[in-house]
Computed example of a mutant assay.
Amino acid sequence: MTAKPWTDAELESDAVSKKDLVTFLQDSATYEFLKDRKLYGKPAAITKSSKKPDLITAYTALFAQDAFRPAGQSLDEAAAAAASSANVKDGAAAGGDAPKRVEDATPPEVPKYQKVVLKKGDGERKPKKGDTVIVFYTGTLPDGKVFDTNITGKKKPVGLRFKVGTGRVIKGWDEGLMTMYKGEKARLIIESEWAYGKKGTPDGKIPPNTDLTFEVELVSID
């Protein structure tokens, strides 16, 4: 089951704003889900026109319906795919050739992580598979205990450098980082299947079947 970033109490409090909810929904939900609830559009406009109880209802429905976009698919890409699908249907209705069936097509994998944007990036570029990235990070267990970080101590932190999307890190990182802009800081809540799974880590710092939370800052993209 997909992990929720906020508890019911947090949702009802001032700790979670309308902007937080709109950002999370637009980062996570399918185009159809957002369109049906009039949540597709410029985030600032949606935030201004929406009531928080309605956003909480949409947030709850997102999990209940499991209406998440495939990992790595942006909202713009989802909207373009929906428009393309609509055009194909319109063409078939008008007498055009029906799309051919693809045998044994593999359905998109449901993301097993959630992202909450803590600081916006430059809005210009996201890393793609094979790009070299540098990140700062702090990882915590469900009880809040920090199990790993590269930003502690008095010395200037040294970012972790690796090629994203190539399996050098856990899948939740690979997929989550490819949705971030340079300079963006986000909280990634990663289910165990996209973290260290049934085995955990050999040193025992991460037990088997443990969901993890990371605060990750994408410092650079090469």
Score class of each variant (00 low, 15 high):
residue 2 T to W: 02
residue 2 T to P: 10
residue 2 T to D: 00
residue 3 A to E: 13
residue 6 W to N: 07
residue 7 T to Y: 01
residue 7 T to L: 06
residue 8 D to F: 05
residue 8 D to H: 07
residue 8 D to E: 14
residue 10 E to S: 08
residue 11 L to M: 11
residue 12 E to M: 09
residue 13 S to V: 08
residue 13 S to Q: 08
residue 13 S to Y: 02
residue 13 S to T: 12
residue 15 A to P: 00
residue 15 A to N: 13
residue 16 V to L: 14
residue 16 V to A: 11
residue 17 S to F: 04
residue 18 K to E: 15
residue 18 K to H: 08
residue 19 K to N: 15
residue 19 K to T: 15
residue 19 K to P: 09
residue 20 D to G: 03
residue 21 L to V: 05
residue 21 L to R: 01
residue 21 L to A: 11
residue 21 L to H: 01
residue 22 V to H: 02
residue 24 F to T: 10
residue 24 F to V: 07
residue 25 L to T: 14
residue 26 Q to T: 03
residue 27 D to C: 14
residue 27 D to T: 15
residue 28 S to N: 10
residue 28 S to M: 12
residue 29 A to C: 10
residue 32 E to K: 12
residue 33 F to G: 01
residue 34 L to R: 04
residue 34 L to C: 02
residue 34 L to K: 03
residue 36 D to F: 00
residue 38 K to S: 12
residue 39 L to H: 03
residue 41 G to S: 07
residue 41 G to K: 03
residue 43 P to Y: 05
residue 43 P to G: 09
residue 44 A to Q: 15
residue 44 A to P: 09
residue 44 A to K: 13
residue 47 T to Y: 02
residue 47 T to M: 03
residue 48 K to A: 14
residue 48 K to L: 11
residue 49 S to A: 15
residue 49 S to M: 04
residue 49 S to T: 11
residue 50 S to L: 07
residue 50 S to F: 01
